[in-house]
Design a binder for these strands. Structure first.
Lengths: 242, 242
DNA sequence: GCATATTTGTCCGTATGTATA
DNA sequence: CTATACATACGGACAAATATG
């Protein structure tokens, strides 16, 4: 049994400022496992074994699992358990449609561009370029997501921010089955610069148009390199990868 | 207030087709309580009392409460418990901004209007008019929400549907503190007809424009008649300072 | 198709920590 | 400051559903 979970980080009451419950912290580590590719889509999360590995009670674990189900990172089948969600190609297409609608509309509705918003946008672009230089592709992906969050944040709606954050988080599941992620990210990183430049010169309609075609091409690229492992039609009961 | 819960409806295994867990059913009844105004924003949901009233265990109840917290109908304060969420005026404004962005953009992105989609739209309008005739204002509000869901559904994105459904559900919390809801709903019901007519004649840009001004005026109307009661029994000291 | 073993769903007792009177 | 109430978390128990042979 893989014992790579770090339960000390869970039980340690690290900071009194953290208002997080134990379940939230368990959800955090599980989320990180999924993003890092330790838990592949389709994998089952057996309550007994995960609870052993994480050192929390089953009640707490179930609470954490439920959080991730609501985030759409896990699916829940009554009586069978929870599994890492597997995106279909249709799911991915749908997610991109949502992004085109929400992100572009948010851009076009921006009233005033606050300096802080522009700074966050530029910072995300620069983070992405730095990550490319270091060939750290996970960090490139993270910076890309931050870029799109910064774009939407220009609209100044906190509710819209959380909304798009949830949608973007689902894309992590798509990356798990993309084989040439480095090619993908390097190919589209330049677009971020173009869009940021259009935003800087206050040409939001151009920025929205650039974003729209960018998302269309990205969708095609993702779908073209998406190879979901069907695992022979049967889901493996193995809890932790291997 | 909590004593009037009906636990029979919970334990009854109503339909074998329902893949719902007990927690889901508990969440359903609590959600209905909130929508019906039995549980007002700011009210505390004591685990002990609610569990007695509903006849379920703490574990199950906590699971149900967590569901509603994720739905933003309840708020959770660590160590204090869960409360029915209280919308501030800023919250309402923000929600309307999200609706203007998402609903209008969804309309403008519609490619083909499917007959079923148009039918759902018309049905929601007719349901609303019938409910007005019966002076059943709760039903008018429900029909209004279905109308907007049907509008967004024209875009053909399932993910966008669930997204806007969650946003619209939050408005139930606003209705709780609006006193002249009948005036509000009758005033804006005619707009539904106009928008549906524009959609029927394939003039989606006009429909989006009508929708935009409609949402702006509705926001003003809601804010004007929004009188949040600071619930007497339970104050929210909300110690967020450090 | 049946019998068995495993896992989940649910409930309960209890201990500890935290907030409030 | 103490006391009380309550939320958080743990662990064990059992029935029901599911998976396995």
């Amino acid at each position: 049994m893989v014992e790579s979970f770090n339960d000390e980080s869970l039980r340690a009451e690290s900071s009194q400022l953290a208002p997080n419950s134990t379940a939230s912290r368990v959800a955090d580590t599980l989320r990180a496992r999924i993003i890092d590719g330790d838990l592949l889509p389709g994998a089952k999360l057996s309550q007994e074994r995960v609870q052993d590995a994480l050192g929390v009670s089953r009640s707490t674990l179930r609470e954490a699992l439920q959080l991730l189900v609501r985030e759409r990172l896990l699916t829940h089948e009554l009586g069978r358990g929870v599994f890492v969600r597997q995106l279909t190609m249709h799911d991915i297409s749908d997610l991109y449609r949502v992004r085109r609608i929400v992100e572009c509309a948010a851009l076009q509705r921006v009233e005033v561009i606050k300096p802080a918003g522009l700074r966050a946008l530029v910072a995300a672009v620069e983070d992405g370029e730095a990550a490319v230089a270091e060939r750290n592709w996970d960090q490139v992906a993270a910076a890309s997501i931050r870029f799109h969050e910064a774009l939407v944040a220009l609209a100044g709606s906190g509710r819209l921010d959380t909304l798009i954050t949830e949608v973007l988080a689902e894309f992590r599941l798509a990356y798990a089955f993309m084989r040439d992620t480095q090619a993908f990210h390097t190919r589209f990183l330049g677009r971020h610069t173009d869009i940021a430049e259009a935003v800087r010169s206050d040409d939001l309609d151009s920025a929205a148009a650039l974003l729209d075609t960018y998302l269309q091409e990205a969708e095609r690229a993702v779908l073209a390199s998406y190879r979901p492992q069907v695992s022979g039609g049967r889901q493996r009961p193995s809890v932790l990868r291997q």
